[in-house]
Nucleic acid binder design. Structure first.
Lengths: 336, 336
DNA sequence: TTGTAGGCGTTATCAG
DNA sequence: CTGATAACGCCTACAA
């Protein structure tokens, strides 16, 4: 016999239940939030009353005395970047399963804008996941001092992070290109604020040295298709036979621009990227890329956050997430 | 001289400010929430104190007496569907500008799962945007009775909705295909619970009749690339020369499967879709599609919600969002 | 213009 | 095991 709760009618409270069940409100609170601390009989009666009234806890009221909001924030730079698909999905699922709500915020512009967004959200969440942050290390450290924070694809001293296994992926890619006969490579870097872009380049450098390959870097680019297109001219000028884009978006932009210039990929130029986003497989030729476990990253970030909230030691960065080279058709033998 | 707020130190309250400024807490509340109701002098003093303590309102505490949570929910069936991108972006931006926080929830499975998700979120939000809902009309009506709700791409009596201009887009598409000489079409429908899929088919039917074209429908499909692939066999069996996918994802799946069968698009089969998502332009050949204004839809949905919250009449569905036919290379002359 | 007092829904601390 | 009662941080009549 559940009533039809109209929008105007206020939601039932534990007082309503208490009255209906003939007990004290505090007993209702106990019965409903910490089962077992109340006699089975009364608990049953209270639950029945709660059902009948279609009762839900008021999260706001609940948060007041406890300080727990049961809400987590996920901050991303650009929602339209397909990389965050998986991250969002993994994070949302894990949060929901733990009874937490996930707030997603986009920080678009500068690190200034991002800082503001976070500032705005902070009072209503218990912790924050930073997925593609443009924040400085200082700001991140400051943030982590206020609320539990976990980083994805970024390492900052003293702050928990979830990282991909950069080295193995990069190595596999280099081995692949080496095998195809490429001796000169270019890396099209991401934003200067991207920690992971720098790390990828570092490892590329090491690997290229070991293999005796030439490697140059094409300075900071917006991590979008546009960014990739804009970089083509500099890529061509480098005379490399294979380009490695900071991410798939850049790689795709590169391929589009190359096609427009009459360049045939991979005959004239081999192109590869990172992440394996939606779309990488769609483009012609399909993109060779280093796949990251995005969903797992999102899930793990939230797990870490929940652990910290549960009182775990703060900083910890567990084993990096495995990475796989996905060979498709955008890479081929070096032109002779 | 801002202190370094440590995670353990509790956030400052209006009491702290009151003490520091030598006034009553209620005066602080007034000064900070409704400027002008306090003498300029005291207000200045209070603001200074607030700054000094780096004060933020506690949204939870604020929500208690007022009942306003300043939070909106956006519920989507599948976060990895690129259609959602634009919607999320538009919604998030509009919400943030109005000082609202956006919670995004994914409801994956059945309408049962979606109902549960909403149920869980409801107490912590002021209103809900349903973007790709699988809920029944009854459930939607029930939901709207509890909290303000706005639908995207779905019309339900008595509930506000944001709709695309289906007719003009469909008509443009039909005219395009007619001009290319196609006389037999197939529509690859979306899920049976998709209101907009049915509407698209209806209009296709009308238009096909008017133009004397043949049209068949290939029953309900999952709105993903997989769903499109699975439908190809039935599409071929229909003997149509042009397929219209419920959305771009289905169209892309169709194209992939067709290519694997050795069919050349558009020589052997013309393919088109709806939405113009990320990826439609990337695939080869680039997809002809009816573009929807996704970002605008998300923004407008939140605007409507805010209007309702501000006391506007409840139901209203304003002029549909314009739709544009984007002709690319997946459609061509009908085979003779 | 500013202070006082009561309340919002829940939890926590004490008694009983 | 259960009932009072005081927080939690803010808002809002009402009074001064």
């Amino acid at each position: 016999m559940s009533e039809t709760p109209s929008r105007s009618a206020k939601a039932p409270t534990i007082y309503d239940i208490a009255e209906l069940a003939g007990v004290n409100p505090s007993t209702v609170s106990r019965a409903l939030s910490k089962p077992g601390r109340v006699s089975a009989k009364t608990e049953a009666r209270i639950r029945a009353a709660a059902d009948q009234l279609d009762f839900r806890f008021n999260p706001m009221a609940r948060a007041l005395p406890t300080g727990r909001r049961h809400t987590l924030a996920l901050v991303v730079a650009d929602i339209t970047n397909p990389v965050i698909f998986g991250i969002v999905r993994g994070a949302e699922k894990t949060a929901a399963e733990a009874g937490y709500t996930l707030v997603i915020a986009e920080s678009q512009e500068s690190d200034e804008a991002e800082a503001e967004t976070i500032e705005r959200l902070l009072p209503s969440v218990d912790g924050v996941v930073l997925a593609t942050t443009r924040l400085s290390n200082e700001r991140i450290t400051a943030l982590a001092a206020k609320k539990p924070a976990v980083l994805i694809n970024r390492a900052v001293d003293g702050v928990s992070g979830v990282l991909p296994d950069i080295d193995s992926g990069v190595d596999a890619l280099l081995t692949h290109l080496d095998g195809l006969g490429h001796r000169a490579l270019v890396y099209v870097a991401g934003p200067s604020t991207s920690w992971i872009s720098a790390r990828r380049f570092e490892r590329l450098l090491e690997g290229a040295e070991q293999r005796g390959m030439a490697l140059t870097e094409v300075g900071h680019n917006v991590p979008t298709i546009e960014g990739g297109r804009d970089a083509l001219r500099r890529v061509i000028a480098s005379r490399a036979t294979a380009v490695i884009g900071f991410n798939d978006l850049i790689a795709i932009g590169l391929m589009q621009a190359a096609a427009e210039q009459g360049l045939v990929v991979p005959r004239d130029l081999s192109v590869s990227g990172f992440d394996d986003i939606f779309g990488s497989e769609l483009i012609t030729p399909p993109l060779t890329t280093v796949r990251a476990q995005l969903t797992a990253a999102g899930a793990r970030a939230v797990e870490r956050l929940l652990e910290i909230l549960a009182g775990a030691e703060d900083e910890r960065t567990d084993a990096p997430l495995e990475t796989t080279l996905v060979i498709r058709e955008s890479t081929g033998a070096a032109p002779s």
